[in-house]
Computed example of a mutant assay.
Amino acid sequence: MAPKCKLTYFAIMGLGEPIRYLLSYGKIEFEDNRIEFEKWPPLKASMPFGQMPLLEIDGKKMIQSTAICRYLGKKLGLAGENEWESAQIDMAVDTITDLRLKLSDYYWEPDEAIKQKKKETVFNETLPFYLERLNVLVKENGGYLAAGKLSWGDIFFAALCDYMNCAAKFDITKDYPNLASLKKKISELPAIKDWISRRPVTEL
């Protein structure tokens, strides 16, 4: 019998989207429980460590988006075949997370003057620094981020791209053909393409 899965996250792509991509890739049916921002405060205390995303599988609760993705990656045969390959995937994912955090820090900055200063650094230094190196990494790995083959890290990257594009207000892969090709490759996987075609349209 297939496990009963429920993903609880905000009504955006954000950190929930890599999990949705992986569940879709694995053809695992799940309840996509989306929480509007204004409804989050009263729910926060009921969540483990007061945060989302939360994935429930047959009643067992999992938190921390990267840990959830790593777990699903292993279940779906998208993890490394040995410790070194797994480490390569983790290194790529942690680097992408660093990039996302820096971009998010700029995007969510409430002080407009500070935000403009952060924008200059993020767009002129941070994005080129990370994207140039990730672009080379994909080339070195035959079109993937690690181990020369499809991994959960590739799906993690492609799923976060839409969120990062929305935060940046442009396609961050446009000047990086290897990254653009990888994102396109993932988005055209049949099960993920199906998910993209029917997911709710959100800003982030």
Rank of each mutant, 00 (worst) to 15 (best):
G80V: 09
W108E: 09
P53I: 01
K115N: 10
E112S: 14
K27N: 15
A92E: 00
K39F: 00
E17N: 10
K184V: 06
W108D: 13
K119S: 14
Y25K: 10
S65Y: 02
Q116C: 10
K174F: 11
P18N: 11
E132T: 03
K115T: 13
A146E: 10
G142I: 11
M62F: 15
I196A: 03
D194G: 06
T202Q: 13
I192W: 04
F37P: 01
W40A: 11
V122I: 13
L76N: 14
K139S: 13
E81A: 04
Y21T: 09
A167Q: 08
T95D: 09
A146W: 06
N124C: 07
P110Y: 12
N82I: 07
F157I: 02
L55E: 03
I19N: 02
F156G: 01
Y71Q: 14
E188M: 15
K169P: 01
F49M: 14
T97P: 04
K139D: 13
V136A: 15
E81W: 02
I96P: 00
M91V: 08
L99D: 00
A2E: 08
E83G: 10
D162K: 11
R70Q: 08
Y176D: 12
K6R: 15
P177H: 12
S46K: 12
K60W: 07
G26K: 08
A2P: 14
K185C: 04
F157T: 00
D154I: 03
K44M: 06
I155Y: 00
P190I: 10
F49A: 14
A79R: 10
D98L: 05
I35K: 04
T121L: 12
A159G: 06
L103T: 00
F30G: 04
M91D: 15
D162R: 02
L182A: 07
I172E: 03
D105E: 04
R100G: 06
K193R: 13
T66R: 10
F30L: 08
P18F: 06
T66Y: 03
I186M: 02
F157P: 00
